[in-house]
Design a protein around this nucleic acid. Sequence first.
RNA 1: UGGGGAUUAGUCUAGUGGUAAGACGCCUGACUCUGGAUCAGGUAUCACAGGUUCGAAUCCUGUAUCCCCAGCCA
Length: 564
Amino acid sequence: MTANTPTPAGDIPSDFIRAIINEDQAAGAYDGRVVTRFPPEPNGYLHIGHAKSICLNFGVGEQYQGARCHMRFDDTNPTREDIEYVESILADVKWLGFDWGENLCYASDYFEQLYEYAEQLIRDGNAYVDSLTADEIRDFRGTLTEPGKKSPDRDRPPEESLDIFRRMRAGEFADGEYVLRAKIDMASPNLNMRDPVLYRIRHAEHHRTGDDWCIYPMYDYAHSLSDSIEEITHSLCTLEFEDHRPLYDWCQEVLGIYRSRQIEFARLNLTHTVMSKRRLRQLVEEGHVAGWDDPRMPTLSALRRRGYTPESIRDMCERVGVARRNSMTELALLEHCLREDLNRRAPRRMAVLRPLKLVITNYPEDSSEEFQAINNPEDETMGTRQVPFGREVYIERDDFMEDPPRRFYRLAPGREVRLRYACLITCTDVVKDAQGEIVEVHCTYDPDSRGGNAPDGRRVQGTIHWVSAAHAVPLEVRLYDNLFTESDPAGSETDFLDLINHDSLETVTAMGEPTLATTEAGDRLQFERLGYFCADTDSRPGAPVFNRTTTLRDTWARISQRDT
RNA sequence: UGGGGAUUAGUCUAGUGGUAAGACGCCUGACUCUGGAUCAGGUAUCACAGGUUCGAAUCCUGUAUCCCCAGCCA
């Protein structure tokens, strides 16, 4: 490995991990090298919690001079892992915008070397083959407050252990017949040090090594050695592995191999969702959601489908920071990052979610015209487009009230509002059906206000969006809300499944301006005054489907809610 | 009366002996052809109790609360 010039600690953000790395750099530790790794097990989909780890590890790998971050699969348990997960994980990391370059690694690539190190451990008297059953090992382990007992096999001579271990590898024994254990300290107050299992027999096909092996290394052993083999300098993991650090260090120390340093940080928790693989799997398997990429899920594939940008996710991870205390980040922060990003980038369009027909009685029948609309007021370079207009338009049901409360300054009988980019209209009549439901609103327009400007400069409080009825394109729109009603469903007394928000998905047929007919899956748009929407992969030619990524900040919703 | 961690505003994070910083949220107001965006202002004495010190969120002592650990999972 080549030595690197230390990076000046000046402008590297100051979370405690980077502070440690800065110190190491200043002290010339690790020859000035900085190498991290992101080590998922390919047994599930990546979620927003993983994003924090990805941003940290790859972020560090980018920030320091000559640094890098290895993409490594911790694939030591063939019974639950699959190539499908490998591929989705790779795609998600790439989507987030990170690059592992040449450094795509698999713990399974080290199986032979790991095995040889295990023989060394046995020869040195640091490991032994045990014939205790799983139940017996548990019994012998002791409890949190009582020391464990030594296995009768603990003093098996190294030659004998070596022989059995080789035969374990050769496939002479059934699953569970023997295990290889580290010989450390059965009385240690740290249960991980009470002769932890290093290898177990598993006659199972591995997604990469096939049936080359029938013994597989355990996490603590494999992870510590993999880090060492790759000469990882800073091995960043979550808090629950803190108790494993002594074992991590022990493995590298007794073998006399490259020393990596494990540093733990608090994982990301987000309100109104769950993050554990077990719960996510349950949501999918029991059909509470449509799949791993159901846009209500916190998986990266779901967030992508929902319309979240990788930039917004990375921004959130940066703002959350890195520390050692358990925390729960508010979803609002992620949403803020999203809106900030999309506000700059998303083209504006007009669509009406809950259409109410509005007839402009003084507008000529069978006539139409086009108005120019701005594609993005935040970015002039995005230009303008023409939007057709006619005698009948759809407006949002919420934008009309027959008997409006104070502070409501949209359309109501006798009121004048602006149809965005089109003209000023005044409500003259309300048409109801037999049930008393409003089915139509009649207005007159001011011909001199074409384009939406008041000819005499008079102030018009409200501006509402609309879609020409004659030109409208029907859209399937999926309105998403939080999957859970409580902020911490996993931490609640109530079972998390009973906290599912049954209104988390509402599908409506909206009416959109003509340009919306030609969107492609993945396109992100702002429907003016409503929110950000993303064309779904379910879209078909002539039948667009949109996911509501998030609403716009809605001051009126807050005011009206507060007043009731 | 096992071990390991943590404790700064509603939330997240900075501050490491010199009198609490930033972000989100929330509240006010300005502006506005998105009640969007933008802009201006407001919003904590640092878990608690003692102690050291001219001076403590930062040092010491004790207490409380929360999290993690008894897979041949990672």
